[in-house]
Design a protein around this nucleic acid. Structure first.
Length: 452
RNA sequence: GGGGGCGUGGUCUAGGGGUUAGGACGCCGGCCUUUCACGCCGGAGAUCGGGGGUUCGAAUCCCCCCGCCCCUACCA
């Protein structure tokens, strides 16, 4: 099925964090690639882009980039009732955030209605379609069958007896989905139609229209659908299911790409982490699985954490700053990095480094007892003397207090933690103290002693 | 009802005649240890949807059944 063409050029993404948005110029040479394909992502703007749509877009994009072909964006907005400009903008936003840049479009299918009507006229004229009660229907033979060749599913046969003459133009003159899709795919020179399996049953209809128009159907590939953890169709009740929700929940686009790429596709038995470049190079429709997958946010969290830890503190800070709308987070980001799984984890974990947090009653009650305040007083005295106020010296001083009292380390560290963070959970105490700075630490200890 | 697709631990998957059915997330236990994580080590968890065949041997091939999903709209 694949034709290997040596020495052709292909555009390539620049990998995690570096893929520029739409319209980027740099290209790189890859030595082996498939024949260039023209693919399209054709969402219907009836809501936010959810993870299933994002995966469809990603697979199409990977195919285009991996072959040096083109990724066409087409908005299927022929349902004027449900399609809104806001939804269109949301989808474009989501694609931009995912860094899936398109080469052509976005085209509005509704704006191509003239062209669709033209082709309907032709079908009418040639007798492949007929008018009935104002609507136009395509003539489907009673006998025979239409065979769809699908890269993922093999040969699928649809008996004509099970397909009625279907409407391609409403009585108000507006073209319908199956007609518009077939005409657009043809006009746009689409070579591979890669979409959700929910469209498999529509495929013979589109193929029939194409044939009636004198064209050969493109190569089809129907992807397995995505479900929620309860096995039902993905929806709001399954947590962060839309791309914007994923973004707001603090996931990294490169992690999301890696994760969703693996929902229905895998390179081999064990490869899990793949840069976007790796994906571009190795993605193939032949290895896409046939069965539906369930979106598991827990696994995404884990994977996102791994990506987060590979960022430099400066990169991490930049992402946090744009998500939280704050500045100067590098120090705090560095301290919190090893314990975060999403960007949203940052504030609960390290917000105390940015501004004082209200003390948590339960933490206070549990820790500030049995001489804790006395030890905290000793900690204050020790920290006041530390010179220079750096991690190594801070640790030395605090361990000396532990020695002095002959207690377990946590008997000294936990009261200090509660005093400076307000709670019992935080990054390492030495890093935290150092990052906060002497003046602020002493001030917080004083407040704690006062309160105590 | 008709047509189509899919079915490997809770989840993502590898494997497609002979494997102790492999890996990952999650879960449990341990180590590390200043909390929580990370990391490392170990463990539980799958009669490969069910039943028949074919075969010395089937998750893998054949047949039947069941379940779920999609299409069957003047939605996309």
């Amino acid at each position: 099925m694949e034709t290997w063409a040596p020495r052709s050029t292909a555009r390539s993404s620049t990998g995690p964090g570096g893929t520029p948005p739409a319209g980027h110029a740099p290209s790189s040479i890859v030595t082996v690639t498939t024949e260039p394909v023209r693919v399209r992502f054709a969402p219907s703007p009836t809501g936010a882009l959810h993870i299933g749509g994002a995966r469809t877009a990603l697979y199409n994009w990977l195919l285009a980039r991996g072959s040096g072909g083109a990724f066409v964006l087409r908005i299927e907005d022929t349902d004027r009732e449900r399609s809104t400009p806001e939804n269109v903008e949301q989808i474009l936003d989501a694609l931009r955030w995912l860094e899936l840049d398109w080469d052509e479009g976005p085209f509005s299918q509704a704006e191509r209605a003239e062209r669709h009507r033209e082709q309907i006229e032709r079908l009418l004229w040639e007798g492949d379609a007929y008018e009935h009660e104002g609507a136009v229907r395509l003539r489907v033979p009673d006998e025979g069958e239409t065979v769809v060749t699908d890269v993922i599913r093999g040969t699928v046969t649809f008996p004509h007896s099970a397909i009625d003459d279907f409407v391609i133009r409403r009585s108000d003159g507006s073209p319908l989905y199956n007609l518009a899709v077939a005409v657009d795919d043809l006009d746009m020179g689409i070579t591979h139609v890669v979409r959700g399996e929910d469209h498999l049953s529509n495929t013979p209809r589109q193929a029939m229209i194409l044939r009636a128009l004198g064209a050969d159907p493109p190569v089809y590939a129907h992807l397995p659908l995505l479900h929620g953890t309860d096995g039902k169709k993905l929806s709001k009740r399954h947590g962060a299911a839309s791309v914007q929700e994923l973004r707001a929940a603090g996931y990294l686009p490169e992690a999301v790409r890696n994760y969703i790429a693996l929902l229905g596709w895998g390179l081999d038995a064990s490869t899990t982490f793949m840069t976007t470049d790796d994906l571009v190079k190795s993605f193939s429709l032949e290895r896409v699985s046939k069965s539906p997958a369930v979106f598991d946010e827990q696994k995404l969290r884990w994977m996102n954490g791994r990506y987060l830890r590979e960022l430099t503190p400066a990169e991490l800070a930049a992402r946090l700053e744009s998500l939280l709308g704050r500045e100067g987070l590098v120090g705090a980001a560095e301290v919190a990095q090893e314990k975060m799984q999403t960007l949203a984890d940052f504030w609960p974990l390290a917000g105390f480094l940015v501004e004082r947090q209200p003390p948590q009653e339960k933490a206070w009650e549990r820790v500030m007892k049995n001489g804790a305040l006395e030890r905290l007083g000793a900690v204050r005295a020790a920290l006041a003397e530390v010179e220079p106020f750096q991690e190594e010296q801070v640790e030395e001083a605090l361990r000396a207090v532990v020695e002095e009292f002959g207690v377990k380390p946590k008997d000294v560290f936990q009261p200090l933690r509660v005093a400076i963070t307000g709670g019992t959970i935080s990054p390492g105490i030495f890093e935290s103290v150092t990052a906060l700075g002497r003046d602020e630490v002493l001030a917080r200890i004083d407040s704690a002693l006062e309160r105590g």
